[in-house]
Design a binder for these strands. Structure first.
Lengths: 375, 375
DNA sequence: TTTAGCCCTGAATCAACCC
DNA sequence: AGGGTTGATTCAGGGCTAA
């Protein structure tokens, strides 16, 4: 994007006319101005790693005297909380405009800035869904022995509003976590080794994030083909992982050096093939089975007796796939719900039957049916 | 405290005349009014577990239809973020007044409230030292499968200002963590089992905190005899652990039922004896050992050779406890610092020697010396 | 035979969370 | 309205074994 375009984009109020999204490109200049050039409601996810507003004093040395290469870059210095808040409100507001209504936002930060970001985000109408703790396996120790070792950073995940819809790939996360629900604390090493980008021996960026972190974020909260915007692109971890996972990406980055490194990096990245991405699908993708189909297929005879696990209630299957229990008739879900007086009931797991001498939930029969249909 | 006293305390500006602290007492009524009755700069630590402002909607049921017993108490209801912020500013400001200049504040919360608390705390001039993640080993699952399992809560630890002093028992924490620096993520189970207070079969308080959490907080950031104030005392976990650790406590609690349970609980608590508390002392409390004393005691002969771990430098011990390395002479610390060109150097850990065929830091010798002196 | 103690199982519970 | 959606822990009670 040329300077003229940039200036016009910054000066003109946002226009909602459809514009082509700069997919796979890194917009130069200030991220607020850059985001103004994007259409409203055009992006599925924003991932942001803003400056942390670290309040470092002088130099830091290890107990053995060696010097700690800390974050002292000029872009991380803010005069006051007020200045940082103003900056935060501006980029968050623009991110909000650019997001689709059922899009979502991620921000990563440390205790220096995350409380300000979190409060402002709520003030702007974003709705917090989780705060995630990135628990570092190998944090830098506290060399002074004056505080607890700062062994984590925090990510905020927010929808665009309290009632807004959002995407969460529950099954993919559960699969990734060995069939247990993914928790709000993620154990991931800091970025180092081969993954850490270097330029003539020095780290190319002081706060390069591990790809594992972005992998989990994108896998959890985007679909294939979604557009991911990173307003603080740095050396492009978001872009690299997005490309690998078959997501589209847009970056904003002021520093030309970082843009160069990022483009080179993403160039080398190879997308996973279709089949690798498919395996991460939700159970919702399974074909829906009508209870009646089981009766129809002869897996279950009309008149068969169903009962809940504790055998508090029994019901009888009818020819049309409805069931009857006393005065209650209807679907397996409806009768289960009414008998329990519950707000809802999954009949597939609530009702059981004796099958080859064993007590099994109806769901087992459904799986059998699905297997039979597949062949 | 009677209504009249309360009103006067609320109306009158804080007076700095020395007043007797209500140690070991739970002040009734609103915590802001109660704190106003306390003298300025009289408390060493504030630990606060304020309402989380959970903003809960309808009922929550498990997949099996059973009902989840959630926090529905009126004290957790706020009309808006603005109302919650006002409440937070008021109690935090009063806590600030009551704290000694080198006192500190802890607040625990969840993503619903902690970002507001953190930002307000910074606005009031408190200085964040760490944010601590309480990682629950046994969190409640996410029954709807719509988000990540909320498996942690956050604690903020703050001093009264950027330049303010504060207490951190580094050695006690390192000892507690098996000789590794204590990290900012603490793995502690939720409060249950025997520890969970019950009244006629039901939990006495919906959000009782585990004692292990308070144990670590008080051990890390208070000294024996310090005064700990908890403005949201609940069933008195803070008081119970404070008493056990030989700290003084003051509580504020509106609900008479909670006050009764708390007093009964703390009554039963037994303080640890002196010797148990002594073992948790800071290394600073250990008698300081002059390097010369080791020479004097014969643990180290004059002329013995010292070297750094990488054997970049060597030095020789002199009879007076000074060392010499080339042209540099002085204390173990000074020579180490000068040779490295470092701003400072801990000679005890920098210099090594061969001892019984093994390379050991001087510090090992110091420990031997201390053991010998104790007997 | 009695009985203390262990193992197994099922129920309850923990700062809440739909499309 | 159908159809999704729960993990670690404690504790009580039944059955078994060994002293």
């Amino acid at each position: 994007m040329g300077t003229l375009t940039k200036i016009r984009a910054a000066a003109a109020p946002a226009v909602d006319e459809p514009r082509e999204l700069p997919l796979g490109r890194i917009l130069p200049g200030d991220c607020v101005a850059a985001m103004r050039s994007l259409p409203t409601a055009s992006v599925d996810l924003v991932f942001a790693d803003p400056p942390y507003n670290l309040q470092l004093g002088g130099d830091l040395n290890r107990p053995d005297g060696s010097h700690v290469d800390a974050v002292t870059d000029h872009w991380d210095q803010f005069a006051s909380f007020a200045a940082y808040d103003k900056f935060t409100r501006e980029w968050l507001a623009e991110a909000r405009r650019v997001l689709k209504p059922d899009g979502a936002l991620w921000v990563i930060g440390s205790y220096h800035n995350i409380y300000r970001v979190g409060a402002i985000l709520q003030d702007l109408g974003f709705w917090l869904l989780n705060d995630i703790v990135w628990r570092k396996t190998n944090p830098m120790p506290n060399f002074r022995g004056t505080r607890f070792t700062n062994a984590h950073e925090t990510l905020l995940w927010a929808s665009t509003g309290e009632k807004a819809r959002y995407h969460f790939n529950y099954r993919a996360m559960k699969t990734l976590n060995d069939e247990l629900q993914m928790r709000s604390d993620w154990v991931i090493p800091v970025c180092g080794g081969q993954e850490r980008l270097k330029e003539n021996g020095h780290k190319a960026h002081p706060t390069q994030k591990p790809e594992a972190l972005l992998y989990r974020v994108l896998l959890a909260t985007t679909e294939k083909g979604d557009v991911v915007l990173d307003p603080f692109f740095g050396t492009g971890t978001t872009g690299a992982v997005a490309k690998r996972l078959g997501r589209q990406w847009i970056g904003c980055e002021r520093e030309e050096g970082y843009r160069k490194v990022a483009l080179k990096r993403i160039e080398k990245e190879l997308p996973l093939d279709e089949s690798a991405l498919e395996t991460m699908q939700s159970r919702k993708g399974q074909p829906r089975v009508a209870f009646g189909a089981l009766v129809e297929a002869g897996l279950l005879a009309p008149g068969a007796e169903l009962f809940d696990r504790q055998r508090r209630w029994t019901a009888s299957v009818r020819a049309d796939g409805s069931i009857i229990s006393g005065a209650e008739t209807g679907s397996i879900h409806h009768v289960g719900k009414t008998l329990q007086g519950a707000p809802s009931c999954n009949g597939w797991t609530f009702w059981h039957l004796e099958h080859e001498g064993e007590v099994k939930p109806l769901d087992a029969l459904r799986q059998l049916y699905l297997l039979a249909v597949e062949d």
